[in-house]
Design a binder for these strands. Structure first.
Lengths: 237, 237
DNA sequence: ACCTGAACACCGTTCAAGT
DNA sequence: ACCTGAACACCGTTCAAGT
């Protein structure tokens, strides 16, 4: 088994795989895991599968649909915490969702634009609604709130996944921090007064505060479309 | 001045404009207004300016920086309402910001990724912080909350600007609505119970509820990083 | 009937070679 | 010293022509 004596082709191709939707999606997920969703292009996929890009259109209607299928697949890996108060489990589930998006650059941006509706998405939705119900949040508020919570998680991930961390991103942050630091206190009194508070906190602390903020707001903001269920009181935290 | 007798070249070129950052940004804004930010590419811009794409890199470091400059310019057109309670004016200002993003497809997506830090962005931030201060929201919560409010507005706009409204978008929505309608009530009890509530409400009603939800949450969720200012009480609405 | 090569219409960015 | 033509390395999608 000495790797030096073992002959090895540059890339092991077990014959040529028969094309199918399943093979395409599986290959796309491999690329996503290795290099991020941005590299999952029709042409790249075709190259990987030893065919021309036109062939893929027999199984996948377009790039957006392919990305949506990959997203739903990844949603299956979101794990909910098993213990704690309902708020903690809710926050944990949302944090896990955010982490999955952050782990694969480009996934978040796609989740923001694609209307997800696959089975894994529905399962995640159900879990979120279950936790809100457990916390006594009225149905109408939970129904609208769950969208807001998902949007917050997705948008936060998209914001962070945008920057490749390479170069200009740090500069942008520094530039904003400097602009806030040196702002004219006559024209921008509030920014000057708050100063460092505006840039404080690690990303995960900001995310956690955002979830708690939303949960508190959802619990106490009546949905004007739902049956009157406004008597519920939920404790702040 | 009869337009039929007035000779008119296919495109009036007042000689060839001297290249400069200002000319590039101005031309880019024209394209954005007419066809959306997505059409603002280095090559398209170069074509419009009668030169090669390489020439633009003398004045603009890359496409992302150009898009950020355009965004900040558009932020200057966000108008705040002059009357009403602080919550109404805050919601109005955020709605105006959202409308600007929605008016120019691609702007929202860019706002989500680019760290905005231009003068118009700072002015908008100041106005938002001023309104939160007027409402008695403690500084630490306002400092973190303002980011959350902007993110919610930006993400909502990005979500809606993604769909060109052309074709597959309606199908996606119908598919999700159908999936929710026909969900198995044993595996997905909460989705089944809430049913139509999950899809109810016009986009602007959802957006408004989202802002109110966030404002309510921000006012009553302590910022763990700021000085203790937890005694503030703000009425629900 | 099913599949796909080749084409159409684009991209961002760099760099060597010109003025 | 300054500017840019041309090249490199890509895109998504369609459709006529093949098997």
């Amino acid at each position: 088994m000495d790797p030096r004596t073992e002959p090895r082709s540059r890339r092991e191709r077990p014959a040529k795989p028969a094309l199918s939707r399943a093979v395409i999606v599986a290959t796309a997920m491999e690329i996503t895991r290795a290099e991020g969703l941005r590299k999952v292009t029709m042409r790249r996929l075709a190259r990987e599968l030893d065919t021309g890009p036109a062939s893929l259109y027999v199984y996948v209607s377009n790039t957006a649909a392919l990305h949506a299928a990959i997203l739903d697949e990844f949603l299956g890996t979101v794990e909910a915490p098993a213990e704690g108060e309902w708020q903690e489990r809710l926050e944990g589930l949302l944090t896990a969702y955010t982490s999955v998006l952050l782990a694969h650059p480009g996934l978040a941006a796609s989740a923001l634009v694609a209307r997800p509706g696959g089975p894994r998405y529905l399962a995640l939705l159900e879990r979120l609604l279950g936790l809100l119900d457990e916390g006594g949040v009225p149905g109408g508020r939970a129904a609208w709130g769950v969208d807001t919570l998902m949007l917050h998680a997705t948008a936060t991930a998209a914001e962070h996944a945008g920057r490749d961390g390479t170069d200009g991103e740090r500069e942008d942050w520094d530039a904003l921090a400097h602009a806030i630091d040196t702002v004219d206190e006559r024209t921008h009194p509030r920014i000057a007064a708050l100063g460092a508070d505006l840039m404080s906190g690690a990303p995960h602390e900001r995310l956690s505060w955002g979830f708690r903020t939303l949960i508190n707001g959802i619990a106490r903001t009546p949905n004007p479309f739902a049956a009157p269920d406004d008597d519920a009181a939920v404790a702040d935290r």
